[in-house]
Design a protein around this nucleic acid. Structure first.
Length: 265
DNA sequence: AAATACTACAACCGCAAGCGG
DNA sequence: GCCGCTTGCGGTTGTAGTATT
C-alpha cells in the first residue's frame, strides 16, 4: 500500500484551478501507468502538484465514467432518501449513484437540496405538532407509535408518502439503518465479483444483524413495546423501520438498496 | 455600465485510519 | 509500540459565472 519515494521532494506545489494541460498530463499518466502511489504521480507525470491534489482531480473530474451535468430528479430523490438515512456519508451515498462523486453530491446537497430539506423539515415540525396534539386529545400516547406521522428531522421523510401500519403481520427485525445497509452490502458481498471493492459500511459486522433478528424472533409484546418506545424516541429510527416494513410487505423479505430506491421513484 | 450579491462548483484543509519500517 | 507516510473522507474556502440593483 505504501510506496517509497526515492527522495523527499521539496518542490513547491501549485494550487488553484487545473489547466487543460495539467489535466492532459495527469490523464495520460494515470491511463498508462495507473496510480498505485499518488504521491509519486505528480513527480512522474511532470506536474507541480501534490499527490493529494492529483488524486482529487482524477477522482472528481478526470476519471472515466463520470456523469457530468445536472442531476436528474431520480438522482435528487435518491440523495434525499439516502441522506435522510445516512447523514453526511457522501462516499456511501455516492456508491448508489453511478457516475457521481462524493464531492459532487456534497456540493449539490449544499447548493440545492439542503434548502429543500430545511423547508420540508420546517413543514413537518408544524405537521407533527398539529398531529401530536390531535392524537393526544383523541387517543392517547400509545397511538403515536403505530400511526406516527412522517419524521420531523429526516430530509427524506416527505418521500415516503403514506405511512403503513407497523409490523402488523410478521415479527420483523428492528434494524437500525446502519445494520440494514450492512446487511445489504453483506448480501452483495456474497456474490460480489472480484472487481467490486468492499464499501466502508461493511465495517459493521453481520453479527449485529443476526443479533437483531434473534431478538425479534423471540419477540414478545414487551419487547415489541420496548422497541416501539425506542422508535418513538427517535424519529429517524421510526422512519427507517416504517419504510423497511413497507418494503418487506411489498417484496417479501428479499431486498436490496437499489430496488428499495426504485420503489420510491 | 458598474457595483454588489448570489450561486454553483472546484479545490483545499484537517483529521483519522491503515500500513510498513 | 512508535513514528512517519499515504490515503480517504467530510467540512470549508475560493473562484468564476450570473443575476440583481
Amino acid at each position: 500500500m505504501r510506496c517509497k519515494l526515492p527522495e523527499k521532494q521539496t518542490m513547491k506545489h501549485r494550487k488553484g484551478l487545473w489547466s487543460p494541460d495539467e489535466d492532459q498530463k495527469l490523464t495520460y499518466y494515470v491511463m498508462n501507468y495507473g496510480h498505485a502511489c499518488w504521491s509519486s504521480v505528480p513527480i512522474n507525470a511532470g506536474l507541480e502538484r501534490n499527490g493529494k491534489s492529483c488524486r482529487l482531480r482524477w477522482i472528481n473530474y478526470l476519471r472515466p465514467g463520470l456523469k457530468r451535468g445536472a442531476f436528474s430528479s431520480q438522482e435528487e430523490e435518491t440523495i434525499l432518501i439516502l441522506h435522510g438515512f445516512l447523514g453526511n456519508k457522501w462516499s456511501q451515498i455516492s456508491q448508489h449513484l453511478p457516475g457521481r462523486t462524493d464531492n459532487e453530491i456534497k456540493n449539490y446537497w449544499h447548493s440545492h437540496l439542503k434548502k429543500k430539506s430545511d423547508k420540508s423539515k420546517h413543514l413537518q415540525v408544524h405537521q407533527k405538532h398539529d398531529y401530536t396534539r390531535s392524537n393526544l386529545e383523541n387517543k392517547g400516547p400509545s397511538s403515536l407509535c403505530q400511526n406516527a406521522p412522517n419524521s420531523t428531522n429526516t430530509s427524506s421523510a416527505n418521500m415516503v408518502r403514506s405511512v403503513p401500519t407497523v409490523s402488523k403481520i410478521r415479527n420483523l427485525p428492528k434494524l437500525l439503518f446502519a445494520d440494514w445497509v450492512s446487511l445489504d452490502e453483506f448480501r452483495h458481498d456474497v456474490g460480489r465479483s472480484s472487481d467490486q471493492p468492499l464499501s466502508h459500511g461493511s465495517k459493521h459486522q453481520s453479527s449485529t444483524v443476526e443479533h437483531e433478528w434473534q431478538h425479534s424472533e423471540g419477540s414478545t409484546e414487551g419487547i415489541e413495546n420496548q422497541n416501539c418506545m425506542n422508535m418513538c424516541s427517535n424519529d429517524n429510527m421510526l422512519q427507517t423501520q416504517m419504510t423497511i416494513d413497507r418494503f418487506f410487505e411489498f417484496n417479501d423479505v428479499d431486498f436490496d438498496i437499489d430496488n428499495f430506491l426504485y420503489m420510491y421513484m
